[in-house]
């Protein structure tokens, strides 16, 4: 761009009216001052040792080092599947095996990380940090998906008891803060389950997240279901399909496709909400940060740690929101 074009752009975008010009000058002033302060803080005042020393803890917690190869394999599988999925979405060639591939790899990855069935087990207390955040977020969304669909269908049901139970559940869960639900899951679940069933803390945390997420998902899916014209249902009946086939083959595929952007938004929210599990004692990314900050040598390194952890969360959430925007255009 030559000098004239630059001046034209400046004039149009930054200085077109008198108050815009003032705004621009003020903003530039603040930006320069802010950037100077921030950079001098980052380079000279902040002590980044806390991050460097604890990087492993942040990312995978106390997961045994000799089992890291399993994590690398999992990452490899995920990257591979993701690129295939993106490729097929972009080229609009639907691949029949993809959903099945994702489902299988989900179980495989859980097996790799957790062990059992031939592999040495890794106690779930050792999964900490980003690893735990990811495992909990993905597991919760995977389980809450069929649950949410069932709730949405139940909400439309003609059966009085089923319909009202679903409405009650959805409205109560949506009216409570997540921390309340987690409290209920941590405290009440042991009380209402028979004595011989005990759930460890991670499972109770996942249960709380899942129950929470399912209610919101149900509302999203309900929106999709209501957008399907009645004629689709009638056409299905007219060609002789029964209600279950109509739901599985005709209604749900269309409804779910319509709510995919909302679903991705919900996953982003769930990913952020895993941070609340730190309050009930789980050491996911936020929890392990607080644990690290409690060590005497790293006291007062709040800004460094929280900014680093914030960056990690941000990278994941922002990428997902970009994917969602891309999906909406498809």
């Amino acid at each position: 761009m030559n000098q004239n074009q630059i001046i034209k752009w400046l004039r149009k975008n930054l200085f077109d009216t008198w108050y815009n010009s003032i705004l621009t000058i003020v903003c530039v002033f603040l930006l320069v001052w802010g950037a100077k302060s921030i950079f001098s803080w980052i380079l000279f005042i902040a002590q980044w040792k806390v991050i460097a020393v604890n990087l492993q803890l942040f990312l995978v917690g106390r997961y045994p080092e000799q089992m890291y190869w399993r994590l690398w394999v999992s990452i490899f599988i995920i990257l591979g599947l993701t690129s295939v999925t993106i490729g097929s979405l972009v080229k609009k060639i639907p691949n029949r095996w993809l959903p099945l591939a994702w489902a299988i790899s989900f179980s495989v990855i859980l097996w790799l990380i957790g062990g059992g069935l031939g592999l040495q087990a890794a106690d779930s207390n050792l999964w900490n940090g980003l690893l735990l955040t990811l495992v909990m977020a993905v597991t919760s969304i995977v389980i809450s998906f069929p649950l949410g669909v069932l709730l949405a269908l139940g909400r439309q049901s003609k059966l009085f008891v089923v319909r009202n139970f679903c409405i009650l559940y959805i409205e109560i869960v949506r009216g409570l803060p997540l921390i309340g639900i987690l409290f209920i899951a941590q405290v009440m679940l042991p009380l209402v389950l028979p004595d011989d069933i005990t759930l460890d803390r991670v499972l109770r945390g996942i249960a709380g997240l899942t129950l929470f997420s399912a209610a919101y998902l149900a509302e999203n899916v309900r929106g999709g279901l209501q957008s399907i014209p009645r004629g689709q249902f009638e056409a299905g009946k007219a060609i002789g399909l029964n209600s279950i086939y109509i739901m599985l083959l005709i209604i749900l595929p269309q409804a779910l496709r319509a709510v995919i952007p909302a679903l991705v938004g919900q996953f982003i929210g769930l990913f952020k909400d895993t941070s609340l599990l730190s309050i009930v004692g789980l050491l996911e990314l936020t929890g392990i940060s607080r644990s690290i900050l409690a060590q005497p040598e790293f006291l007062n390194r709040y800004a460094e740690v929280y900014l680093f952890v914030g960056l990690l969360y941000w990278v994941f959430c922002y990428s997902m929101s970009l994917v969602s925007q891309r999906l909406e255009k498809v």
Binding site: L153, G154, Q156, K158, L159, I228, F233, N242, S243, M247
Partner: peptide, 11 residues
């Protein structure tokens, strides 16, 4: 929509 949750006719 009013779907009977389990329509037995298919079975």
């Amino acid at each position: 929509m009013g779907v009977l949750l389990f329509d037995v006719s298919g079975f």
